[in-house]
Amino acid sequence: MNQQVTSPPATAPAKPAGPGRPKDPGKRAAILDAAKRMFVSHGFERVSMDQIAAEAGVSKLTVYSHFGDKDRLFAEAVRAHCEQGMPTSLFVGEPGAPLRERLTVIGSAFFSMIMTPEAIAGHRVLCSPQVATSAMPAMFWEAGPQRVQQAFAELLQRRVASGDLEIDDCARAASQFFTLLKGEPHAQAVFGYCCSGKADSPAQHVASVVDLFLRAYATRG
């Protein structure tokens, strides 16, 4: 009697290895918050990744997994600070909104952001000799000021197209606007100098910058 040979059941093809475990956004936010607090309190050089991990309540391996190194963590803390103070939605203005009003809203948000203790401390970190000669200034610029200026330059370009402004170089005009907003008040804050004389309020300072900007670039007539 012939025996029927049965083949073993075919095994399913192995699935390709999937990506690594998705990173926890809650831990990322906790690390950024801890980094911002410690950089402000102790300065960049005196803070270690171990200390940031302990402050955030995570392992050092988790910190490195999310950010790679301390320089990149600092840059991401800057990005988070800028995105919180000046979200992208701030530059998506309604076409019919009055130009002066739109510039005032943006100027007020920018001035409030750069005058926070976190921003002042970050500026001082970047001016330190150890950091000034590293790659961090470029990382900081791309993470913060460059993003803000590009978004504002695009807004200005839309206003040029609608006939509200006459600007040949919107990128340059954007840089001028934010440089004027920083002005003397930001320099005094960085130096830790409190002017004893009469100083404009933040609202007055922003209004004067907006007025000067419009006198330079608003469409005549």
Rank of each mutant, 00 (worst) to 15 (best):
A10Y: 06
G26T: 10
K15V: 07
I31D: 07
H66E: 08
F67C: 00
P9W: 06
V47R: 00
S59L: 05
R46T: 08
T6N: 15
A35F: 02
R21S: 11
P13N: 06
K15L: 12
K23Q: 14
A14T: 13
T11M: 09
A10K: 09
V63I: 02
P16T: 09
V40Y: 04
F39N: 01
A12H: 08
K70T: 00
E45H: 03
H66F: 07
Q51W: 03
A30K: 09
G43W: 02
A54V: 06
A35M: 03
P9M: 06
S59R: 04
S59Y: 04
A10H: 09
P22N: 11
Q51P: 03
G43V: 05
A54D: 13
S59A: 11
G20L: 10
V5T: 15
T6H: 15
T11H: 07
V5K: 13
A54I: 03
R46M: 08
N2W: 08
A12T: 11
P13M: 02
P19A: 13
F39T: 02
R46N: 13
M1T: 14
S65Y: 03
Q4K: 15
G26I: 06
G26D: 15
E55G: 09
A14M: 09
P25A: 13
Y64D: 00
A53N: 04
S65V: 02
D50W: 04
P9C: 08
D24K: 11
N2I: 12
G18H: 08
V40E: 14
R28C: 11
G26W: 07
I52F: 05
G26Q: 12
K15F: 06
D33A: 15
R46D: 14
S48P: 14
H66Q: 08
M49W: 00
D24S: 15
P19Y: 04
V63Y: 01
F67D: 00
A10E: 12
I52A: 04
Q3V: 15
P22F: 11
T62H: 03
V5M: 13
N2T: 13
A12S: 14
Q4S: 15
D33E: 14
V5Q: 15
A56H: 02
I31K: 03
V47A: 03
N2A: 15
H66V: 01
G20S: 14
D50C: 05
R46E: 13
A29V: 09
H66G: 03
K23V: 14
H66C: 10
R37P: 08
Y64M: 05
M1R: 07
A35Q: 01
Q51E: 13
I52V: 11
G43Y: 04
K15N: 06
P8S: 12
L32C: 10
P9T: 07
M38P: 10
K27Q: 15
G43S: 08
F67Q: 00
Y64H: 05
A17H: 09
A14G: 06
K36L: 10
S48N: 05
D69N: 11
F39G: 03
F39R: 00
P16C: 04
V5D: 15
D69R: 00
K60Y: 02
G20M: 07
Q4M: 13
A17T: 13
A10I: 07
A35P: 06
G68L: 00
P19Q: 10
E45L: 02
D71C: 00
V58G: 09
S48E: 03
P13H: 03
R21G: 06
D33T: 14
I52G: 06
R21E: 14
Q3M: 12
